[in-house]
Design a protein around this nucleic acid. Sequence first.
DNA 1: GGAGAGTATGACAACGTTGTCCTAAATCCC
DNA 2: GGGATTTAGGACAACGTTGTCATACTCTCC
Lengths: 335, 335
Amino acid sequence: MPSIHDVAALARVSIKTVSRVVNRAPNVSDELRERVTAAIRQLDYRPNQSARRLAGGRSFMIAFLYNNPAFSYNSGIQSGAASRCRDLGYHLVVEPMPLAGEERLEILDRLVATLRPDGVFLVPPLSDDAQLLQRLSELKLPCARIAGSVMAESFNIPTPERAAGRMVADHLIGLGHRRIAVITPPASHKAAVQRVAGFRDGLAAANLPLEDSLFVEGAFDFESGIAAGGRLLTQARRPTAIFATNDDMALGTLTVAHRLKLRVPEHLSVVGFDDTPAGLTAWPPLTTVSQPLEAMGAAVSDALAGGATDMPQFSFKLIQRDSSGPAPVQGAVTA
Amino acid sequence: MPSIHDVAALARVSIKTVSRVVNRAPNVSDELRERVTAAIRQLDYRPNQSARRLAGGRSFMIAFLYNNPAFSYNSGIQSGAASRCRDLGYHLVVEPMPLAGEERLEILDRLVATLRPDGVFLVPPLSDDAQLLQRLSELKLPCARIAGSVMAESFNIPTPERAAGRMVADHLIGLGHRRIAVITPPASHKAAVQRVAGFRDGLAAANLPLEDSLFVEGAFDFESGIAAGGRLLTQARRPTAIFATNDDMALGTLTVAHRLKLRVPEHLSVVGFDDTPAGLTAWPPLTTVSQPLEAMGAAVSDALAGGATDMPQFSFKLIQRDSSGPAPVQGAVTA
DNA sequence: GGAGAGTATGACAACGTTGTCCTAAATCCC
DNA sequence: GGGATTTAGGACAACGTTGTCATACTCTCC
């Protein structure tokens, strides 16, 4: 492995000049820059990160903290972030966190002490973990989040959750549904709560009544989708459509529908959120909302490593598949 | 941040002695060890990894290379590996690879040049990427793989693919099925090919004929499962059970069954492989084979970081759910 | 044409560890 | 009891960068 000294010798300059060229520092004449660049290419020189880190204080590492059990969500973001990191000469270190408990802070401390990452990347629901955010700010570690809502002095990629919720409402209302239920997220999942707000906006805009019995809270997993769906579908006046605030709960609702021998979408429309692979392979394929996960991950890497300053805007897309369709004709289906 | 010098000063020893204590090196008296340990605790000293790396040549980093589109598979392994890394004082750096192309080697080179990981971790189908393995061996980088089959001088966690295939065959045969089809993996996926071999073992043991038309190759994704399932289920003499060598293809088969209005499992049994979340949330829930992914990931970290020498053995489990059931009574269902 | 302000370059000391080599004391072996 | 070996500990030089400062040179301006 060639070192900076080898390059300097070949280019007949000092190691400092090589360093300047590598780091794109000013005050290097074109001629020397040329010579050094040529030498670097000839030797296939790559700076040693450890030495760089030791001398310069930067580690070229970004830590990715997650505790979301939704594999595909994390994976998409992680891929986007890791690829962009690679382009920027950084690396992405993954750190799975426990769902709760003081242990989180201890893990963070250890991570910071041993790795000293240049930045920390949080995804929901960690994005709203106040304790974690506070510790991060104490440690003066740059931090970037996706869909964070708690106030914090960190870079945050806002997501149009509310607009997406509205989009789902408009979709179902447009199909003629009038009695629509919602399976809401746990209150701790702040970003997802906005989906419900947007959905309510849509109901209000269409002058549809907001009935409390049509809003049931779920836990963001399949089982809770079954439970919530079960409660909704055994009501005397059954809704003709259900918006589940994530795909797992939507799939639970689909399962309940199958058990009750309700045909989807003829008798019941179901819409999820997240566009997980399981939604695509379900029966019928799930209408859902997709997020540009890879792009969002990449944007975070940019913010943390590249120093991008402008706040990117992302848009969610409604993916219409077969789990949603026209509302059944009045009176055609009764419990 | 305290450095080794601070610890040495507090314990009234040389920095070298502190280093010895930290690295559990021999030739330190109990008394000094005690004093140093106390000082370390008192100052909450943590060695600087970059300095360690620079001086010692180890980076305490393990690179996790993957290109498998199966999120849940990667995620499970990654979580297990990352958690164990944490316990061992290592970190896991993720590197998503493109599915094919020379670019792979370039990415590997850059990764090694800049990160210099202590080990590289490959999951299928990268585990059998001959080019990658060769480059790795040229670079003299310790490498560990899961379910690798190509000969290579690397640590490999063997998986009982063949036994699992046999297990599935026995399950279906035990349910009375006699005409069973298989959706096989692409030939490049060596590990999965063994599942088919095991399945054939089971057929042979039960004296069932091996009919070529009952073996259709898929591409390991949902779409190809639909295609292969379609071919199998529109045959004149339809199979009563289908073993798909992964869950995505099994879900495709389920979709075809729904389209053809075949009831599962009354008319058709379907078994998948991998125990993905989508299989659990499908309708009906998929009978499949689960692997101890987290434990496998942890074992690889052990091998790469801890120096564990004994080869762990893992077993696969058949998860019986509702997509498989007794074979339909002869003649009861005809096309 | 000379002071003052850039610009280009290099020498050298950090950075915080581990490896190598050296010394002194303790232990062993006949 | 005296040489050989082992054990415990330390001094110091790596490791490969970047930061700081010094220096020499080139403008610009009056």
